[in-house]
Design a binder for these strands. Structure first.
Lengths: 208, 208
DNA sequence: AAGTATATCCCCAAAAATGGCTATTTCCCG
DNA sequence: CGGGAAATAGCCATTTTTGGGGATATACTT
């Protein structure tokens, strides 16, 4: 298991190196203080996992992970930082990072994280996991009591796709009038009065 | 650290009990095979962490976590299942679960998960973490080159809100015909042919 | 000065959507 | 068995949307 490090703080970089080489499970294939020639280095070293500091001089860690994942999708990147800052977490994760470990984490958590991401899983340090979770739980209050039947959901789905009554009737092999009736019922259940409101409410409430 | 278990499979429940009592860090305060009198039990036992099977008879685990978190927000719930099914993962997490451990996970992972959630963090088993991550990285392929003018964006916004041509005309103090013209231009720029497609494309591409 | 983009307005006619009302069949529940 | 939900289908009339032609004014660019 080949691991590469990008970390500008010399002290911390050396302690990372120590953890990696003494873990017994990894081979340290590179350790750098900046992202110069980033892609060439990755290309040459062929690491399985990259440990990347989120605050690097020059091109920062967030942009780096994007570049790495674009050029080498099979390389897994695990981010590291002292701060657990929302924006940076989400920016990193959206750009392709597979893990996020705080620098305050104990060595065994780091080892664990590397193993997890290398084997195709992901690892979040608990405080980061908590923030990721908050994102899901902060979803806009859904109108809970919109209870559509299976048929109605299907028709709503096609409505959102942009089909007309006629097209839906053809697609589902039922009469135009039936579509009409269903849509009337859907609008009533959703408390809306037309296509426009129905579609945006459906999308916002994830009814489709 | 008080831990309660809800798990209908007797064998597995007993092995959970064993892990909890032998870990040395936890006090097993309750172990149940169903969710009868759920809230009363929680009330009486005052657990710090609840281990909840996602597939329980009667009221299922997903509904249970919702109820627990609503009545006792300070109680941390960690979900367990043999399946790592997308819908259930997200339903649980959105309903307030703080952790998600597969039943195939080794005991030390379970212990770790309980400690993490008890201390205010969250824990995802690596495969679950990977799926959570996938949700962030699944950026809808944005149609990059839809260049609307400010006025067009404004009209599109109201269209998504569900306003009719007439209502928009009133709102913006311009003629119905102007709305008509703008929408024609908007539809052409967006490569759509009607309200329905325009609204869903606008929402998907975050044009509004 | 000519050309282009933007916003505004208008006519016409066809196509689509909506709302009120009724009706049949099927299937499930008490 | 009777009642109710769900899916199906229809009639009628009105409103809304859409696409095809225009047109004018203003501002900014070349």
């Amino acid at each position: 298991m080949r691991v590469a490090i990008f970390e500008d703080n010399k002290k911390y970089r050396e302690s990372l190196e120590f953890v990696i080489v003494t873990s017994g499970d990894f081979e340290l294939c590179g350790s750098f203080s900046d992202t110069k020639n980033l892609l060439q280095r990755i290309e040459a070293l062929q690491p399985h996992v990259v440990l990347m500091d989120i605050n690097l001089p020059g091109i920062n860690g967030i942009e780096s992970v994007r570049q790495i994942k674009q050029a080498f999708p099979q390389v897994q990147v695990c981010m590291q930082t002292v701060f657990d800052d929302d924006d940076k977490i989400f920016a990193s994760l959206c750009n392709g990072a597979s893990g996020y470990v705080l620098k305050t984490a104990p060595p065994d958590e780091l080892v664990r994280a590397i193993k997890d991401v290398a084997s195709g899983g992901s690892f979040f340090t608990p405080s980061v996991a908590r923030r990721v979770l908050a994102h899901f739980q902060a979803q806009p209050v859904q109108d809970a009591f919109i209870q559509l039947t299976a048929r109605e959901k299907e028709i709503l789905k096609w409505l959102v796709e942009g089909l007309s009554y006629k097209e839906m009737a053809n697609r589902l092999n039922i009469s135009f009038h039936t579509i009409h009736t269903h849509l009337r019922n859907i609008y009533e259940k959703m408390h809306v009065s037309g296509k426009g409101e129905a579609i945006s409410k459906a999308m916002r409430n994830k009814l489709v």
